[in-house]
Each structure stands twice: as C-alpha cells, then as structure tokens.
Design a protein around this nucleic acid. Structure first.
Lengths: 238, 238
DNA sequence: TAGGCTCATTTTGCATACAAAAAAGGTTTG
DNA sequence: CAAACCTTTTTTGTATGCAAAATGAGCCTA
C-alpha cells in the first residue's frame, strides 16, 4: 500500500509532508521561535507578515497566531497597528533574566538533590561526558547542545513541570544572546570545570553546595553574555 | 467639534466604543483572561469559537489569536483539531506553581529590602491599611484586591520587570483557585497578621526575615487553596 | 440492548478578501 | 533646501469563506 500522503500544495518551503498530524500554526510557532533564538531573525527585526508567511509556506492567519503565542513568551513585541518586531536584546533585560534564572536554577538544584533517581544521575553523567568530548574537540555548537540538555535534565530531575516550563521560556532569551558569544578557551574551560563540580554535588546530594555552584555558574554565564552583547553593539556602532 | 467616534457596529456586547485605540485582539485577550481567572469560564470548559466570538462581539480571528496568547500563558490548553479548553485546575499543578512562586517571592523580598524607596514603602503601607479596613469589614473581594496589589507592589520594588512578569503569569493560576476559596475567619486573621510582619520586615530592610515570612505566607496560602480545591472536587463528586 | 456503521451537522483550521491605518513618495511652498 | 501637505502604495487588523476533521444522530446488526 503506497503512503497515502495528505493532499497538500507542493511548495518549495512547505512544512507539511508525510502523515503530519501536527497543526500548521504549531509548526510555525516552533520554526519562528528557532529563527529568533538562533538569530536568523535579529533583534528588532520587523516581522512582515506577507514576507514571513511566504517564507514559512503558509498564509498570514497561522503566522499571526504564532506571533501572538511568541509575544506571550516575550520573544516578539506587538506594536499596535504596526505589527510585531523581534524583541530587542537589551543588556538590562538580560541581567533581569539571569537574576530570575538564578533563583529558578537554585530551586531546581535543591529539588534535584532530593528527587533525582540514580538513573537520572547516570543520564546526566552520560550527557556530561558527551559534553566533555565536544569540549575536547572544540566543537562549540555541539558543546552548547549538551550543555543545554544537562541544564534541562537538572530541571526535570526537580520534578516540577511548571518550573521547567518557566525555565525554558526565560532560557530562550539567553540562548539568543549565546549564539553571538565568542567563548574564550579560558572561560570555556572554567565553565566545564564548574559542570564537573555541579555533577559532583548532585552525586553527593549536596543541595546547598549545588545551589552555590549553580549561582556562580550563572553569574559567569551572565558575564559571558554581557561581553558578547557589548562586542555586538560595539560592532554595530562601527 | 463633535467626538468623531470610529465607525463600528453597535452590537450589544461590542467592546469598542469612544476613541478606543486598543486593538480588538488585545481587548479580547484581557476579557478572556478575566473570564477564566474569575471562574466565569470554569476549568476544562470547551471554548467554542463561534459562541465565544459572538459573546465578545468579534469574529473568530481575533479570538483565535487571543486563545493562542493565553495558551502560552498556560490558561488554556490547545487540543489539535479539537479547539481549546480552559486549563484544568489540578491540585498537583497548584503545588508546582506555589513552589515556583515561593522562590520568586523570596527573591523579590530580598531585592525589595535593598531597592525599595521610602515612597515605595509608604505606598505599601497605604495599601496595607486599605486591606486592613476591608478585612475589618469582612469584605473579602476588596481584601483580595488590595492583597494582590501589595504583592505586586513588592514585586515592583524588586525592580526586575521580568520577575514581575513571570510572577503575574503564575499568579493568574492561583487567582483562579482563590475565587473558590471560602476563607475561614481564623485563616484570614492569620494571613493579615503575616502581612503585618512582612511590612515590618520590609521597613527594617530585613531581607532574610522577609524571605522566611513570604515562604510561610505562601505555604499557608497553598493550604488554603488546596482546601478550596478539595472542597470543590468533593462537591463535584456529590 | 450494546456495539458499530453510515451519513448529516457542527466545529475547527487555514486561506483569502476587504477596510483602515501606516509608510513611502512626490509636489508644492515658505 | 527643508518642511508641510497630499497621493499612492504597502501593511496591518478583522471578517468571511471553504475544506477537512470531529461530533452526533439514526440505523442496522449481533
């Protein structure tokens, strides 16, 4: 029996293909979020509905729904009668986000030390070694990927889905900045060392120490991000 | 010159009137959120687009955009090809939210002790006395109103707009539950006493004590909400 | 009578149409 | 030459149209 593909236009950029049960506007949300987080749509870029809809292979209706969704996440800003722009990436905002993330990660670390199963810890350890491997090879993008996964896994170990959701939302803002970061080898090594310590604290179920480590780790990350932002704005001023 | 009202249908429930520069879908977002938070649209109610659009005096398009926005806030859930429902109000979810709120309020309390101006504190004191007045008269709704304002003001004193925004989002969930609460006089008196202590700690800029007080206050609030939820589910099971 | 089938109705999801607002461009005037 | 005005074009905001999916009502069958 041949695969009965749902009838659909065969546009170049069409998103739907093979038995795709997802809804178009949900796909658009994810694609648009990626475009923003990965910096393909730079901060303060105006979102032209006609152009974007075409680019994403849909009509304006699902696109507008996606824009509203992302506006609630704070990744885009709505300008009445003037559409929407990619949310600006201001140093001030970034500081705010890091303060909140600090509280959330500290909470997660504490909960994770109590709730993580041995299997959870084994999984984090595995991710950790993947990360080390990519660090050793100097593969920044891959490194970030596993780094992210470790932080998310920490969150999940806390066993609080609401916490994870809020974390993800705020973290999207940070990720945007990170894509510009030019991590120095020195900072990078330090970050890896911090991860070693964090894993150790989790293994020993030392919630208090883990909280401290997470706060320091975040503080260092903030410095990194601020440097990247400053470099970027200096570049823009040239 | 007579007020040149923008031409518009004169439906019964029409939202726009006199020089209203707000956009329809933004109005719809706020109205729909109120309906959900105040329980007029009960948890797990199916959102029929045609009916709701009519009720709000608009077409389905802005309504759908509003639904997507509120979905991101977590107040409604999207069911692919089956529309949307008001998010269920599960005790488990409520516990999660309170844990996160605890971390956020503690953070805010700490920051507020450092950053609040004397004018801020005066304003909180004023709100506090309003609250006391309504407590004395047994006016629950009004009491809640000022209670809310005090908590929001605390947040604002922390001087972190991102923190305030996240707080508001999570707090919306709690508010939903609170509208069912049947506060006993005993608990109510206790809550007021806690507020007295919180104000005192803020005046003395005792961040550590304020954090503890806020955590306890929230813990008590959680008990209240859980009782309300249990009472409601017991009622539903009858 | 319970279970399942078919067909009609409703509802959702997406595309398009249209009106109002904003932006762009050109012309005039100081 | 710049600023103010008017016109044209573009873009947004909302309503409506239409197809596909889901729902529900009969009807049949075991």
């Amino acid at each position: 029996m041949p695969a009965a593909t749902t009838s659909s236009t065969t546009d170049t950029n069409n998103v739907t293909s093979l038995a795709d049960r997802r809804l178009l506007h949900e796909t658009v949300i994810d694609r648009l979020r990626d475009l923003i987080v990965q910096g393909e749509l730079a901060p303060e870029t105006k979102l032209n509905e006609r152009v974007l809809a075409e680019k994403l292979g849909t009509s304006r209706t699902p696109l507008r729904e996606a824009i509203k969704f992302l506006a609630s996440e704070g990744l885009v800003e709505l300008l009445p009668n003037r559409g929407a722009v990619v949310a600006p990436l201001k140093p001030e905002k970034m500081k705010e986000v890091f303060v909140v993330l600090g509280a959330l990660e500290a909470l997660a670390g504490d909960l994770a030390c109590r709730n993580a199963t041995e299997a959870d810890i084994a999984e984090i350890r595995a991710l950790h070694y993947h990360m080390l491997a990519h660090h050793a090879r100097g593969e920044l993008a891959q490194y970030f990927r596993y780094n992210q996964q470790i932080h998310i896994k920490f969150m999940e170990c806390a066993g609080n889905a609401t916490l994870t959701q809020v974390y993800r939302g705020l973290n999207a803002h940070v990720k945007r900045a990170r894509y510009m970061a030019n991590l120095s080898r020195e900072r990078w090594d330090k970050a890896v060392k911090e991860h070693e310590d964090m894993l150790d604290a989790l293994v020993k179920r030392d919630g208090a120490r883990l909280q401290t480590l997470l706060r320091d780790h975040l503080a260092n990350k903030l410095v990194m991000v601020m440097e990247a932002l400053n470099a970027k704005s200096a570049e823009a001023a040239r």
